[in-house]
């Protein structure tokens, strides 16, 4: 279960043989890779259109907002914390961006920055309460989930829509031939992976998650890094909200991002991040996000009713946990 902790260290120019071995290793560490490949194959055979470029693009765009939040959330979980408030922060971020762009006629940049600032504020409240006051992250962010949703509905009781063509750029334009949300998600994934591999704080994240007391006695600042991760998670959730608002050109305070926190957490956990902290990898998170995106899309193509889709998603999480628990015992 050491996944990314050991992967990036050591040789900088791996030999081809090492690469092949690394591939096998990756498969052993991420059995989800195999499951994902099988699932894609089954969906392609049954629908015949799953691998069409248009459909893949749809999957990528759907998965993008999930990935943007899943990466910082995964880092937070690795360091032993949790953020359940991201669904509500996403809604508030989308509303603030939409309100600035649509009703205040601000430039798209100002609209997005406004959303990010609100997300940072929510993250800072979570971070201060959890990291500096030592309150339980589960309780604090569960409370914030409800409180921020209530705030969003109080501030924006009516649905917002028609944010203008400028703001639509965020969700609809293409950068280097890739949809903007997918491009942003790719940047977030790369940044997350580089952080874990190359930043000194990346190691600290693991150390704090594995053994907080030992990390403290090693002279590591055990508050600052998780606090920063709470802020970044809030920012990421608000950014995802702004992107969703731009794609849909409308936001409703009561329903936007409802249940999103659980979907993101599912993706993170499916990706092999341990809820107890201390282990996980960005590659795993990517796989978890893609798995959920493909599952949802394939089942929709097969016209499976929504409730069955939810059942499939939930079953996948429990099956994944069971696999992670029993798998090593069976192979040994």
């Amino acid at each position: 279960m050491t996944t990314a902790t050991t992967a990036p260290a050591g040789r900088l120019t791996p030999s081809p043989r090492a690469l092949a071995g690394g591939g096998l290793n990756a498969l052993r560490r991420h059995p989800l890779l195999l499951v994902l490949a099988l699932m894609v194959l089954v969906f392609q055979l049954t629908t015949g259109s799953f691998l069409d470029p248009g459909n893949l693009r749809g999957i990528a765009t759907d998965a993008a907002t999930l990935a943007i939040v899943a990466v910082p959330l995964a880092l937070l979980v690795i360091s032993g914390y949790l953020d359940l408030s991201v669904g509500s922060t996403l809604a508030l971020g989308g509303l603030v961006a939409g309100w600035l762009a649509g009703q205040q006629h601000q430039s798209p940049a100002v609209a997005v920055l406004g959303a990010l600032a609100v997300g940072a504020a929510v993250g800072a409240v979570n971070g201060i309460l959890c990291c500096y006051f030592g309150l339980s992250a589960f309780i604090v962010t569960l409370g914030m989930l409800t409180a921020v949703r209530g705030l969003a509905q109080q501030l924006f009781p009516l649905p917002l829509s028609s944010f203008g063509s400028g703001f639509a750029w965020l969700g609809g334009s293409r950068i280097a031939g890739i949809d903007a949300p997918v491009f942003i998600a790719a940047l977030v994934l790369v940044a997350g992976a580089l952080f874990l591999a190359l930043a000194p704080s990346g190691r600290h994240v693991f150390a704090i998650g594995v053994n907080r007391e030992a990390a403290y006695l090693s002279g590591i600042n055990i508050r600052r890094t998780p606090y920063a991760l709470f802020v970044v998670t809030g920012v990421a959730a608000a950014l995802a909200g702004a992107i969703k608002a731009s794609v849909l050109d409308s936001v409703v305070a009561g329903t936007s991002g409802a249940g999103f926190e659980l979907t993101v957490l599912t993706a993170v956990l499916l990706g092999g991040v341990a809820l107890t902290g201390g282990s996980g990898s960005i590659l795993g998170v990517l796989l978890g996000v893609l798995f959920l995106g493909c599952l949802q899309n394939g089942l929709t193509l097969l016209s499976v009713p929504t409730f069955w889709q939810q059942m499939a998603q939930g079953t996948a999480l429990v099956a994944g946990a069971a696999l992670a628990y029993f798998g090593p015992r069976l192979t040994r």
Partner: peptide, 13 residues
């Protein structure tokens, strides 16, 4: 166990 080691992390870490 409680105050020194990070069991799942690598020896180098």
């Amino acid at each position: 166990r409680r105050q020194g080691l990070f069991p799942v992390l690598s020896a180098q870490d």
